[in-house]
Design a protein around this nucleic acid. Structure first.
Length: 304
DNA sequence: AGCCAGGCAGAGA
DNA sequence: TCTCTGCATGGC
């Protein structure tokens, strides 16, 4: 590790809600410390804060040479025009309420492998548990990254090649249960170049989704999460139990449409930025006061 | 103590 | 094609 220094810059933005963006179930590694969000992006330690709560500015710090900071702008989706995006939404009361509640929430452009691997670990896990598993995985198999003096240690997310060389039993030590086999085999296939994650954005959404769903442990929902949160496929609309229940209550209160029907509805109804609409709905229903827990619902529209 | 979690895969109908 | 079930683990 190089000697720790500190580099900083300030981004001017229309509106950015760091907490909503970094803590809404898109990414699992950001931690709030002393009023700022600390995480690791592509092996770089990063700290982000809104000075004096000013949502039009983001103060960013790193511990390694940051170059022109373009990578961080990209990661945070700072070039997304939220006003224009929201203007494409249908005028539904429920969605508009979510938009008002989630102002400044942006979709991230995460590293493809970290995002895919994290969501493979997400199935039937609560977000707090996913965080724990990912943290354990990084501590055990990641490499230490340079942090500023006085900061707790941080690790990179282990590469596909690194994980491909471990055993299922070793991965299970991170308490990921049956997901270990999925993660291991997927890591091996990605490391072997069988699926080139960096190339997916060149494909259409259906084609990219199809590629990801060839991987074990990756169904429609996890594929859509990976494409939405790392591939920039802002139309992808992941349907989990929360969204499924919300769609039923909000749009089909008297009927009982099957998941496949709701998926088809969501694909067209929310338009070209459906992924943004989805994340606003998801964050809103999970954070509003007196929220209702989702009941038992089957989510299994099949793979083809 | 149960029920359920940002699901998926395999089996049987 | 649709439905049902097992899967590991741990919060609440």
């Amino acid at each position: 590790m190089t000697a720790a220094r500190e580099f900083s810059t300030t981004f001017e933005v229309d509106d950015c809600d760091l907490a909503g963006t970094l803590d809404s179930g898109q990414a699992f590694r950001w931690q709030l410390r002393d009023g700022g969000w600390e995480g690791v992006i592509a092996g770089r330690w990063v700290r982000l804060e809104s000075p004096h709560g000013d949502r039009t500015r983001i103060l960013a710090r790193t511990a390694a040479e940051p170059g022109n900071w373009g990578w961080l702008r990209h990661y945070l989706g700072l070039d997304d025009d939220l006003v224009a995006i929201v203007a494409t939404f249908p005028p539904d009361d429920a969605l508009q309420a979510a938009v008002r509640a989630c102002r400044g929430l942006r979709l991230l452009r995460q590293e493809p492998w970290e995002c895919l691997a994290s969501f493979i670990l997400s199935s039937t896990k609560q977000i707090v548990q996913i965080r724990g598993i990912v943290e354990a995985l990084c501590r055990r198999f990641g490499t230490p990254v340079t942090v500023p003096p006085g900061r707790p240690p941080a690790w990179s997310f282990p590469s596909a090649a690194t994980l491909a060389g471990r055993t299922e039993a070793e991965l299970r030590e991170c308490r990921m249960g049956f997901r270990a086999k999925y993660l291991l085999v997927t890591a091996q296939r990605v490391a072997a170049g069988e699926v080139r994650l960096a190339e997916l954005p060149k494909l259409t959404l259906p084609a990219a989704r199809e590629r990801l769903m060839e991987l074990p442990g990756v169904g429609r929902k996890i594929a859509d999460c990976a494409l939405l949160f790392s591939g920039g496929f802002v139309r992808a609309f992941p349907v989990d139990v929360w969204i499924l229940r919300a769609l039923r209550e909000l749009y089909f209160p008297r009927r009982r449409p099957r998941p496949a029907r709701l998926l088809a509805f969501a694909e067209t109804h929310f338009g070209p930025y459906g992924g943004y609409a989805q994340q606003y709905l998801f964050h809103h229903i999970r954070t509003r006061a007196g929220r209702v827990r989702p009941g038992p619902v089957a989510v299994n529209p099949g793979r083809a």
